[in-house]
Simulated assay, not measured.
Amino acid sequence: MALTPQSNEAFLREVDEELRREEAIKLWKRWGIVIVAVIVAALVALAGWLWWQSHRKNVAGEQGIQFNQAMDALGNQQPDKAAPILADLAKNGTEGYAALAKFTQADIALQKQDLKGAAKLFAEVAADTGAAQPLRDLALVRQTLAEYDTLQPQVVIDRLRPLAVKGNPYYGTAGEMTAVAHLRMNRRDLAGRMFGEIARDENVPASIRQRAVQMAGVLGVDAVDQAEEKKAG
């Protein structure tokens, strides 16, 4: 019996579906284990990542408490109590708290006039790419302060060049050290110009501006009059 167009189309569709089923079965027999393994591996990786994120959050919370304990101890004039906490965080802490702990250790060393030890710790924080950039910049400024008397003036200028610019949070301190370095190189023109700019910058702390006004005057730059002219204009 001849097949009608409709029955012929249905027959071909059934054959096509059967062929597809057979092909799928062949593919599954060949790759099924691999596919399952990939899916399982992906699920394990996802579970591991979620656990790690949760673990890091918990650890960060615990380390935050430890850091606050160290700060409280320092505030209560108990450096011996704070020292082991800071040492542990500096060695085993997450990137953020390790950097904060080292920075605090460096500040303590600086207060004790251990300039070499302070500079070393500040340098480690400044070079730590995992730390926040503002903390790294401040560590670089503090490192330079600790090493200032042992550094060549050009080294100071080159090191602080990115920070000794208007608008940078550390412009006052970095600019002042840079200006003194110019003075040590007998570049009175550059030193006077920078002192004058610092004196006229209202975002610079008052104590630094006051020193800058005095130094600018010594170098022949009337920063006070220029500042008044700027306001009047």
Rank of each mutant, 00 (worst) to 15 (best):
G96E: 15
A212P: 01
V204Y: 00
P162V: 06
T129K: 15
A212M: 01
Q214K: 12
A126K: 02
G75T: 02
D149W: 06
P205N: 11
L89D: 07
S7W: 05
G117H: 01
I39A: 15
V15F: 08
P205L: 06
A232D: 11
F122K: 07
A10G: 09
A181Y: 03
D16C: 04
R136L: 07
A126N: 03
V204D: 05
V34A: 14
R20Y: 09
V213H: 10
L160C: 02
D114G: 09
A206D: 12
A118F: 01
A82S: 01
T94V: 11
I85S: 02
E229R: 12
T178W: 08
N203Q: 14
M1I: 15
D128V: 01
K26G: 06
A42G: 12
G175Q: 04
G220D: 11
Q69E: 12
L140A: 14
G233F: 15
R209Q: 08
V34H: 09
W28R: 09
I108K: 04
P153R: 08
Q77N: 15
G233K: 15
R136F: 02
L160N: 00
G220V: 10
A45Y: 13
N168D: 11
Q133Y: 06
R187L: 05
R184D: 10
K91G: 08
A164Q: 09
N76L: 12
T173K: 10
Y171T: 01
A83G: 02
V155L: 10
A132E: 15
N92G: 02
A10P: 03
G217A: 10
A131M: 05
G32M: 02
R209D: 08
I65V: 15
L140M: 13
G75C: 07
Y171P: 04
E176Y: 04
R30A: 14
P205G: 07
G233V: 14
A146Y: 01
M215I: 12
V44Y: 09
V15W: 02
W31K: 06
A212W: 01
Q69L: 08
L135W: 12
R142P: 03
R209H: 05
M177Y: 07
A206C: 04
E197Q: 13
R193M: 13
T144M: 06
G96A: 13
L50Q: 14
P134M: 08
D189Q: 06
E147A: 04
W52G: 05
L219P: 05
G96C: 11
Q66I: 10
